[in-house]
């Protein structure tokens, strides 16, 4: 139960930050998504995001900064394993499941549905 509450709170708070950025600055949703991925990546590189994941579980991995964290932590892990080539191969390897799922389901949905407006 504790895990679910933490996921709710941490995930909710990350979304609140996004909402405040959209309401109080001229940033568009697309800008917020890009900013969050980059920020998540930087925090991950500084070792600040993993503690958040341990605390919030899916609350930290499901929001977009979690995507940035997956890219960076995957890169670092791959560098540890296979050296320099990891700089280029680690990111996509770690996020392959999500990215591929998004592309495939995106295409399927486009085939199956029409926009309702």
């Amino acid at each position: 139960m504790q895990a679910y509450i933490m996921a709710f709170v941490i995930g909710g708070l990350i979304c609140v930050i996004g909402q405040l950025l959209m309401d109080l600055t001229p940033l568009t949703p697309a800008h917020v998504l890009v900013l969050f991925v980059v920020l998540g990546g930087i925090m991950s590189g500084l070792g600040l995001y993993q503690p958040l994941v341990e605390m919030g579980g899916a609350g930290a991995t499901v929001p977009l900064p979690g995507f940035g964290h997956a890219l960076v932590s995957g890169t670092i892990e791959e560098i540890n394993k296979s050296g320099f080539t990891g700089v280029f191969s680690g990111g996509l390897k770690a996020s392959a499941f999500g990215v591929t799922a998004a592309v495939v389901f995106g295409l399927l949905a486009a085939v199956a549905f029409n926009p309702r407006g």
Partner: peptide, 11 residues
């Protein structure tokens, strides 16, 4: 708003 934009579902 951001509640459904920021999670991976928004992506």
């Amino acid at each position: 708003g951001a509640g459904s934009i920021v999670p991976i579902t928004g992506f």
